[in-house]
Design a binder for these strands. Structure first.
Lengths: 249, 249
DNA sequence: GATACAACCTCACGTCGCGTGAGGTTCAAG
DNA sequence: CTTGAACCTCACGCGACGTGAGGTTGTATC
């Protein structure tokens, strides 16, 4: 059945958005009605409805309206790709929310049993709450997906497991003598794992740059699962003491 | 182990918030450090950390900072209660996200198979995306929980099931003659279910009023699971034709 | 055809929750 | 003592709308 173009009020009712929101999206060229009545009333046809769904999807992923407009006006994004991004992010968010739920349940039971909980536990809970933030543009997220598909899920899992094993060990040994064989061993493993991680991004150098930029801006400081400044400083010290690390020969 | 008060930069690092955010919260009296160094640097002790966790919880539930401050400065909220609210809202959001994920998967497969999907399906997807919005103050949400506990989960489920069964039937019969016995039967069931639903709010008249206000403001228009204006108009027509409905004697 | 009300239009000020930068002081390490 | 990091206050700016004024158009009723 052919979709009949709708007016702004009905579109607002059927989507849960406000008329002001739709006016604003029209003004900034984000979702522009393709039809108007003779006296100028907006009429939204099915093409705009499709685009609006993509806009709301990307908005829920935390992108600015300007980013969304550039992304959708460019050639590289179809409705299917926006939906894929949205679904993968939804899964991430749901996983994070499960973790947050677990932490809140733990806090709740401890508060009921002991009456109080240490401030450190509250800090960890806040950290989980604020964890997912948009670090990349939609284009970069798409490239993550492409890179992920190229290396395959087993390799991704291996890299993640590698960091999950190595980071705690490095942190437990930050005080090691950089010239000791044990320190050298840690630095070598760090180097090898970094190479393995970066192999997945060979075809997307701008993505590698974006990751490096985010590190530089301290965006990963609250991710205990990501290398931190102290970790990298230690590795640099060990590399200074053992120049052979990193030289593949 | 006793928590050592921390400075604003360290608190920012450990929570994922920004220094500007913490300054702002201090300025508006939302989270105010209880200690300062001699030269005026902020020091956050464990009491502020506990409060900050409640602030971020309520912020994630969509409340304004002013609402949060009033709520936490009032006598009726403890850390446990904020955590309970957060957990129950998290569960709702996760359920909604599962539904959204299902819809996006359905859209994705239809787009891949048929190349296009009707605008109505996109509208339904946007509706799910925008569905959960904060409709009540934290105090009112707490009253919902209290009311829910008073009537018990079985009664809540029975009420929900009742509406889930009755609404589609009413909507399938909006064109019935209001004077017909079938119309009378629907209106009687509507009346009985409304009475059953409202019994849960007898002890919270302000909550009943808040629900009525939200209906009046059209906040439920996108909830197909909630009675709509057309449904209620039909029921009113039937009640006009059968004055005995609603008279309990 | 007149009336009344709902729905729409443009315009523009206001709000919230910070981001960002300027200009300066304090702290801590070398 | 020097230097750089970390902190302070102040204030302008920004994005994404909310809200209201003043008006036109559309539709139903009498």
């Amino acid at each position: 059945m052919r979709f009949e173009a709708v007016k702004v009020g009905e579109l607002a009712r059927r989507t849960g958005l406000t008329i002001r929101t739709l006016h604003h999206y029209d003004e900034i060229g984000l979702v522009t009605p393709s039809l108007h009545t003779e006296s100028g009333h907006r009429l939204y046809a099915s093409g705009e409805i499709t685009r609006l769904q993509q806009v709301i999807s990307l908005r829920q992923l935390g992108f600015s309206l300007d980013e969304i407009r550039k992304c959708l006006d460019g050639p590289g994004f179809s409705a299917i790709e926006v939906i894929s991004l949205h679904m993968s992010r939804l899964r991430e968010q749901m996983e994070l929310q499960r973790r947050l739920c677990d932490r809140l349940e733990w806090l709740d039971s401890r508060l009921r049993a002991a009456g109080e909980v240490s401030a450190d536990e509250f800090l960890k809970t806040i950290e989980v709450m604020t964890m997912i933030e948009k670090l990349y543009t939609p284009e970069q997220m798409k490239q993550f997906e492409v890179a992920g598909k190229q290396v395959g899920p087993e390799e991704i899992q291996a890299v993640q497991d590698g960091w999950a094993a190595l980071l705690p060990e490095v942190r437990a040994n930050l005080g090691l003598d950089p010239a000791s064989p044990a320190a050298r061993d840690l630095a070598q493993r760090w180097h090898d794992l970094t190479q393995q991680t970066m192999r997945g991004f060979q075809s997307t150098p701008e993505l590698k740059q974006a990751i490096a930029d985010n590190y530089k801006q301290g965006k990963f400081e609250e991710f205990t699962g990501a290398p931190q400044a102290a970790d990298m400083a230690f590795i640099e010290r060990v590399k200074s003491a053992w120049p052979s690390i990193g030289k593949d020969c």
